[in-house]
């Protein structure tokens, strides 16, 4: 384990109780991701991709195993501390954008800052984040008035507004056509180049995975790593 690893996970297990049956969604996954890396997580459905991402993103806790995210031992934290970690260290990008439909682009990007406590220059920071994804002229538009690509850009601005250590993207181009999808991927990779943000992309698409530095293949809750 190098000191520079932003995600250090050891032997992560996740067991779901489905009625009478126990399902091993993760059967002991160890994973180290260094600061500034771009990693793709691939695998067929049911392989535990989403479970792994939820745990790495602190949305869920592992049943057993150790997980240190940017120096914090996650498995010892309570709900509020987890919320705080998600707020400060993780930026989420979803396949279906998940924007608040009644709120403007600016309001959506501001949201993580509002949960971060007292921040005086919220509006300026949100505007800067929107500028950096090329939507500086769309700040007062509502999601319904934006195209799919623009909505995903708003979501990206929202993910990076708190300067997180990692950005987690779950099928970020899944709902977009290939041209727009390429632009979004470019934007994400550009963030990695310019700011050194660690990027974890969960995807089905081999062409997207091919542009990352490392691909982690999951199968039946276990890693088959290929360089």
């Amino acid at each position: 384990m190098t000191s520079d690893c932003v995600i250090c996970a050891e032997d992560l297990m996740k067991v779901y109780q489905m009625g009478q049956v126990e399902v091993n969604a993760l059967a002991g996954v160890s994973i180290n991701i260094e600061r500034g890396e771009v990693v793709a997580i691939m695998g067929p459905s049911g392989s535990g991709k989403s479970t792994l991402m939820n745990i790495l993103g602190c949305l869920d806790l592992p049943s057993s195993g150790k997980y240190i995210l940017d120096g914090e031992a996650v498995e010892t934290l309570n709900d509020d501390q987890l919320a705080n970690i998600r707020n400060r260290k993780v930026g989420f990008i979803f396949q279906s954008f998940n924007l608040l439909s009644r709120t403007t682009a600016l309001g959506n990007v501001e949201l993580p800052l509002r949960y971060a406590g007292k921040i005086s220059n919220r509006k300026e920071r949100a505007r800067a984040a929107l500028d950096s994804v090329g939507l500086g002229d769309r700040i007062s538009h509502r999601p319904t008035e934006l195209s799919g690509g623009q909505q995903q850009r708003v979501a990206i601005a929202r993910a990076l507004v708190n300067n997180p250590a990692i950005i987690m993207a779950d099928e970020p181009t899944g709902n977009l056509d290939s041209k727009v999808g390429k632009e979004i991927l470019e934007l994400l990779l550009g963030l990695n180049r310019d700011k050194g943000t660690t990027l974890i992309i969960v995807t089905h698409d081999p062409t997207i995975a091919a542009q990352t530095q490392r691909i982690i293949h999951l199968r039946d809750g276990l890693i088959e790593e290929k360089q």
């Binding site: 709900d79 509020d80 400060r88 993580p112 949960y115």
Partner: peptide, 16 residues
């Protein structure tokens, strides 16, 4: 429900 999930993913605590 989805909105609540999203807010929590973005760092909203139970209290928020």
């Amino acid at each position: 429900t989805r909105e609540i999930g999203l807010r929590k993913a973005l760092g909203a605590r139970k209290r928020d």
